[in-house]
C-alpha cells in the first residue's frame, strides 16, 4: 500500500493565510498523537531496550549489553531454532514472490484486457485474501488431513493415489504446505494492485508501439513492465514484510511449536514461544533480542528494496 510513499506535501497549494495555526493544528492532532504514542511509539522503544537487560521473570535486572544476543547464537535451543525459523520466513517470501509475479501478474494482465466478468474474477481472486489467515490455516489443515481430507480423496479419485500422504505430518512437505497456502491466500492483492497500475498506463503508448511493429511480447517488455515497476516494488516490500511477520497460518498448520519437529517454525512463532511458553527465567530478555533482530531486519531490508526500486525506476525513465 502506502508503504513506500512518503508524505507528499503539495507546496503551493496552501499558499494563503487560511492555513491552520500551529495551536489549532496541535489540537486536531492531539487525540491521534496520544493514542499513537501510548500504544505504538512508547511500547516499541521500550521493547528495543528490554533486550539489553537481564530479566528474572518480570523483574528487570542489570544492564547486560549484548549478552542476550550472544545467547541467541550460542545456546540451545535458540542456536538451532533461529536459523531454522529464519530460512522458513525466507522461503515464504520467495514462494509468494514467485507466485505473485508469474500467476498473479498473468491474471492481472488478462483481466485488464477482458471487459466481461472482470469484477466477478476480481472478487473470486480477492476473497481468500480477506478471509482471516487463521481460518485459512485451519481450513487447509482439515482439507489436508490424512484420513478424511478432501485433497487426498481427490488425488485418489484421479488415479494419483500414490501421491496421497499426510502432508502436514511429514517434515519434508509441511513447510511447502505453509508456503503454498500463504501464496495462495495473498494472490488477490497483487492482482488488484497490478490491475490498478495497468489501468494507469496510457493506451496511446502501446498503440504507437504497435503501429511501429512491436510484438506483444516486446510491448510488454519495453512498455508495460517498466511502467509496472512501482507497483512491483510496492508489492515486493509488502510481501517481504508479510512473509517476515507470518504468524497465523503457521500457527494453525503447525501449532506454536512449529510441528512436525520445527518444520513449520517461523520467527514470530519463535518469538511468541520464547516470550510466553518457554518458562525460562530470562524469557523477556531473550525474546526481546529476537524481536529487535527481526525488527531491524524487516526495517532494513524494506528500506533497501524501496531504495533499489527507486534507483531502477530512475534509470529507466
Amino acid at each position: 500500500m502506502s508503504a513506500i510513499t512518503t508524505p507528499r506535501v503539495r507546496r503551493g497549494t496552501v499558499r494563503t493565510g487560511i492555513t491552520l495555526s500551529r495551536r489549532a493544528g496541535m489540537v486536531f492532532v492531539l487525540p491521534a498523537l496520544a493514542l499513537f504514542s501510548i500504544f505504538i511509539a512508547y511500547p516499541l522503544l521500550t521493547a528495543l531496550s528490554y533486550s539489553f537487560f537481564d530479566w528474572t521473570g518480570i523483574v528487570r535486572g542489570g544492564f547486560v549489553g549484548v549478552e542476550n544476543y550472544v545467547t541467541l547464537f550460542t545456546r540451545l535451543p535458540y542456536r538451532d531454532d533461529l536459523p531454522n525459523a529464519f530460512v522458513h520466513n525466507l522461503l515464504l517470501f520467495v514462494g509468494a514472490m514467485v507466485f505473485q509475479n508469474t500467476i498473479g501478474l498473468g491474471l492481472a494482465t488478462l483481466l485488464h484486457r477482458i471487459g466481461r466478468f472482470k469484477r466477478f474474477f476480481q472478487t473470486m481472486y480477492t476473497l481468500p485474501y480477506l478471509v482471516s489467515p487463521l481460518v485459512i490455516g485451519y481450513l487447509w489443515s482439515l482439507m489436508l488431513s490424512p484420513l478424511f481430507g478432501p485433497v487426498n480423496a481427490v488425488l485418489r479419485g484421479i488415479g494419483l493415489g500414490e501421491l496421497a500422504q499426510p502432508w502436514l505430518g511429514n517434515p519434508q512437505t509441511a513447510i511447502w504446505v505453509v508456503v503454498v497456502v500463504t501464496a495462495w491466500q495473498w494472490i488477490g492483492f497483487p492482482v488488484l494492485l497490478y490491475g490498478a497500475a495497468l489501468g494507469g498506463i496510457p493506451q496511446e503508448i502501446d498503440e504507437a508501439a504497435s503501429i511501429d511493429g512491436a510484438s506483444a511480447w516486446q510491448r510488454f517488455r519495453a512498455i508495460t513492465l517498466p511502467m509496472l515497476l512501482p507497483a512491483i516494488g510496492t508489492v515486493s516490500v509488502l510481501t517481504f514484510i508479510g512473509a517476515m511477520e507470518a504468524f497465523p497460518i503457521p500457527y494453525a498448520l503447525g501449532g506454536s511449536q512449529g510441528n512436525p519437529a520445527g518444520a513449520t517454525d517461523v520467527m514470530s512463532l519463535l518469538f511468541y514461544r520464547t516470550a510466553f511458553e518457554s518458562g525460562s527465567s530470562n524469557a523477556i530478555g531473550t525474546s526481546s533480542a529476537i524481536a529487535t533482530l527481526l525488527f531491524l531486519f524487516i526495517f532494513g531490508i524494506s528500506m533497501l528494496i524501496t531504495w533499489f526500486m527507486r534507483r531502477t525506476e530512475r534509470k529507466l525513465f
Partner: peptide, 16 residues
C-alpha cells in the same frame, strides 16, 4: 512518524 507505522513490525512491541 505516523506513516512509518505502516512499515514497522509494531506487533513486536507486544511485551511492553
Amino acid at each position: 512518524v505516523f506513516l512509518s507505522g505502516l512499515m514497522l513490525p509494531v506487533y513486536l512491541a507486544i511485551l511492553p
